[in-house]
Write a protein that binds this DNA or RNA. Sequence first.
DNA 1: ACTTATTGATACCCTAAGGTTACATTTAGT
DNA 2: ACTAAATGTAACCTTAGGGTATCAATAAGT
Lengths: 69, 69
Amino acid sequence: MHKPTLSNRIRVYRAEHRLSQADLAAAIGVSRKTINTIEVGRFVPSTIIALLIARHFEVPVEEIFSLQR
Amino acid sequence: MHKPTLSNRIRVYRAEHRLSQADLAAAIGVSRKTINTIEVGRFVPSTIIALLIARHFEVPVEEIFSLQR
DNA sequence: ACTTATTGATACCCTAAGGTTACATTTAGT
DNA sequence: ACTAAATGTAACCTTAGGGTATCAATAAGT
């Protein structure tokens, strides 16, 4: 049983919405570091943060976060 | 900035699928404790685990996990 | 009533997440 | 070229998540 990793399309959605990492962070109430580390794939976010990001872009969580392998 | 909490409908879906907590845990490769603590709302799961649970029941993450307030 | 399955909760341990701050680098605007 | 904005990292700290193991309490079957 090997654990899957997580990929994300935050950067794509940020670009579409013309938001900086800091903008998005402020919009959902987390630190810029949190957005950055999630976006570059260093940390796996909590479900609450995933829902906040998805809701902000008005898309399902699965549209932004995907399980790998 | 008040942080939202998380509610879930894991129990409902487990019941529909006639799965025990242990069954679901085994099916997605986590411990029973993990399912139990998430289900009773004590812990907020990682996005990976939320995706695994949603995928197992073939529903969107938002169908199982909801932000509160 | 008895037995088994299931659930809730605990203690313990270890690692990851997320916050603050700071700094270097890269990108964009002028 | 210069300046300002945006990004990537890092150190440091605190808390939460998730694992194993265990036990009590409840639910379900017989």
